[in-house]
Simulated scan of single mutants.
Amino acid sequence: MINRNEKLEQLILEFLSKVDAATALLEEKFGTRCILRLWRTNKIERCGTIIDDITYELHGVGCAVYLPDVCIDFDYGVDGRIDGFDVWRLYLLACELPDQYEKYTDRKVLTADFKEYIAEGKLEEMVPSTDKIYVIKGKKFT
């Protein structure tokens, strides 16, 4: 049987892949994937250049990295986890890549499929989390 939410799964995996690529660049530049502490201790600016035309912008508990093809916006979780996502972040990526994820440029459609994916037991809440941030059930990426 074909997974009804195969496209959602692809979007989630692409999101996580982009976050991994972005945080690898941050680690290369700053020596760590989670640069929040550096910002909060005034060791780096809130916004800056990572390399060439790739830039970052820190906000709250997260970071937006402007890669050549997309902007990837993510939050850091407990212990520097980078594998959390929500409908909003997936929606932003889908809008950046409409040729690949046209269905999910409609936030209502994405929200419905996301809720179904949760009901199927494929996602779980990242705990502790102030927002409803989810991770793939049974996997941990840092």
Rank of each mutant, 00 (worst) to 15 (best):
N3C: 11
R4A: 10
R4V: 00
E6V: 07
Q10E: 14
L11N: 06
E14V: 08
E14I: 01
L16D: 04
L16I: 01
D20V: 05
A21Q: 13
L26R: 07
K29L: 01
G31C: 09
T32M: 06
I35K: 09
R37T: 06
R40L: 13
R40T: 13
T41N: 07
N42T: 03
K43E: 15
E45L: 09
R46V: 11
R46N: 07
R46E: 15
I51K: 03
Y56W: 02
C63E: 08
A64P: 04
A64I: 07
P68M: 04
P68T: 03
V70K: 07
C71A: 11
I72P: 11
D75N: 15
Y76S: 13
D79F: 09
G80R: 04
R81K: 01
R81P: 12
I82E: 13
D83T: 01
G84Y: 03
F85K: 14
R89A: 02
L90E: 09
L92Q: 02
C95E: 04
Q100W: 04
E102L: 07
E102K: 03
Y104T: 09
T105A: 01
D106I: 10
K108Q: 12
L110D: 09
T111S: 15
F114C: 12
I118K: 01
A119W: 00
A119E: 07
V127L: 12
P128S: 03
P128T: 05
K132V: 10
I133Y: 10
I133V: 08
I136S: 08
G138C: 14
K139H: 10
T142W: 10
